[in-house]
């Protein structure tokens, strides 16, 4: 996530384990085709390799995107006083995957938030202009990891208001059942955006006008100290929000 304004293409390298099911491969291919069509970007290069049975677990896909940007927005541009916006509900993807992978047999509205963000980010950049100073996608490790990285790279801290963080009812239910913090699990269709305070409202309004940004919210403020740390205001008190260690696991206690 770097503020691309014109998408050029995707690379796609595939390594397949010998004997991988043909139907599964077809399904993956169809899904990639649909995703590319939705995002309006072609796969332009790549290579396929086959490895022996047992040398890898099924299939490995590696992609990289390339694009043009009029101004590159990285994840290290925060300074004290900036505001932090998340573009929608957090934790949906990670909790949905965890529920499926651990065969929790949860029925309901829990599903991954996977979505292409190009168009949404365009709206953010045109609304906020130079005031948009940092962006990052909170994938593995969730919002907690992404904000730690953003804070460490910029030499600042973050004060996060827990009750402003949007969480869907289904994700909240799963997080209570499993004892896992929605801030610690992966998202696949969300962005964290750091903005100068004077453009915060404008960027937020632009996001909320977009179908993928309806639940966008201001969730925190950049602070000078403590550097590299997240201070979480729970409404009851404050604590540091740690980075998750390894893959979150369902708890009994």
């Amino acid at each position: 996530m770097m503020g691309a304004t014109k998408l050029l293409g995707l690379t796609c390298g595939v390594i397949i384990e010998e004997g991988f099911e043909r139907d599964a491969l077809d399904r993956i291919q169809a899904s990639m085709r649909a995703a590319c069509r939705e995002a309006g970007v072609p796969i332009v290069t790549g290579d396929t390799k086959v490895m022996g049975r047992g040398e890898l677990d099924g299939l490995v896909i590696n992609t990289a995107g390339f694009a043009l940007a009029s101004r590159v927005v990285r994840d290290n541009g925060l300074k004290a006083g900036d505001r932090l916006i998340v573009t929608g509900t957090v934790g949906d993807h990670g909790l949905a995957v965890m529920a499926a992978r651990n065969k929790l047999q949860l029925a309901g509205d829990l599903k991954s938030d996977v979505a292409p963000l190009f168009d949404l980010v365009q709206q953010v950049l045109s609304a906020g202009g130079e005031g948009v100073v940092a962006m990052k996608d909170p994938t593995r490790g969730g919002v907690a990891s992404a904000l730690h990285e953003m804070a460490a790279k910029a030499g600042v801290g973050v004060l996060l208001d827990e009750r402003s963080v949007p969480v869907s009812d289904a994700a909240r239910a799963a997080s209570e059942l499993l004892g896992i913090d929605p801030l610690h699990v992966a998202n696949e269709g969300k962005a964290l955006i750091g903005v100068r305070p004077e453009v915060a409202d404008r960027v937020l309004a632009a996001l909320q006008a977009h179908p993928l940004g309806r639940d966008a919210a201001l969730i925190g403020t950049v602070i000078a100290e403590p550097v590299g740390k997240l201070v979480l205001d729970t409404g009851f008190g404050r604590r540091l929000l740690a980075e998750p260690e390894g893959e979150p696991l369902p708890r009994i206690c």
Partner: peptide, 15 residues
């Protein structure tokens, strides 16, 4: 442990 978890999670120690 769940008391400690709740105390930590809600930041109650600071209160």
């Amino acid at each position: 442990g769940s008391h400690e978890q709740a105390i930590a999670r809600f930041g109650l120690r600071s209160a």
